[in-house]
Amino acid sequence: MALKYLKDVVTLKLNKDKCIGCGICFQVCPHQVFMIDGGKADIRDKDSCMECGACAQNCPINAVTVRSGVG
């Protein structure tokens, strides 16, 4: 039974125009929020995002932003 938290609250944003498809966001995300499709990242499951900030921290061109709070 996959645990799910509240809907439509997370502050995760992906700028697909900037995205270079390096795949790091996909690698570091602990909940498979991202997928790589057609050479670019895409958000697969936004409500599964826990705003940990791993993606934003490691995106080489700052295409991903999220308010990660105090962790």
């Binding site: 645990l3 799910k4 938290y5 509240l6 609250v9 997370v10 502050t11 602990p30 909940h31 599964s48 995002c49 826990m50 705003e51 308010r67 990660s68 709070g69 105090v70």
Partner: peptide
């Protein structure tokens, strides 16, 4: 917990 977001817990 390992899946709750800051925004969600703030709202709660």
């Amino acid at each position: 917990s390992t899946y709750t977001s800051f925004s969600g817990t703030l709202r709660e």
